[in-house]
């Protein structure tokens, strides 16, 4: 499968896709998209990299990458952000928004505006955690398919 065409295209496209995925995750609270969509885009970039590389290189790289730990971290982070609301309010209450917290705690302006990244409170945090979980989950699915397919081909 790994031809020169795929390798060359991947070199140009993969960084673009990864950056675009991160952009969708980070701007989830301003523009269409969010953690799930961005994570899926990011994972598709990783899938491209997996397909374009050799079996052994992919295997040795991902043996070190703790994908299932990333999944747990994503979910736990999301839950943790939701639990912040227990401090005086309710579960899932957005207590960071408009609070002046340095990261994503800025005051949301009303009216027509270009969208300010430093707003949104817990939403961007949740997007980031969901993004981590989705990219780890989807990548491990692609990886399982890739490794199983290749192994069977070697056995033929």
């Amino acid at each position: 499968m790994t031809t020169t065409i795929i390798k060359t295209t991947t070199k140009i496209l993969a960084p673009l896709i990864l950056v675009f995925g991160s952009y969708i995750i980070l701007h989830g609270h301003l523009t269409p998209g969010g953690g799930f969509q961005g994570g899926a885009v990011f994972a598709s970039g990783l899938a491209l990299l997996i397909v374009a590389n050799k079996y052994d290189a992919v295997k040795s790289l991902f043996e070190k990458a703790p994908l299932s730990v990333f999944e747990s971290i994503g979910a736990l982070g999301f839950l943790g952000m939701a639990c912040l609301g227990f401090a005086g309010y309710t579960f899932f209450k957005n207590i960071i928004a408009n609070s002046g917290f340095p990261l994503f705690g800025g005051k949301t302006p009303t009216g027509i505006n270009p969208g300010y990244l430093n707003t949104g409170g817990t939403l961007p945090y949740m997007n980031i955690f969901v993004g981590i979980k989705v990219l780890a989950g989807l990548t491990s699915i692609v990886l399982v398919f890739f490794l199983i397919m290749r192994r069977e081909r070697d056995e033929w």
Binding site: S68, A75, L76, L79
Partner: peptide, 19 residues
Amino acid sequence: HLPALIIAIPLFGAFIAPL
């Protein structure tokens, strides 16, 4: 917060378990 905790605690347990 009992209704929220009864969901949050097993969810927490479920995501810790794979570790």
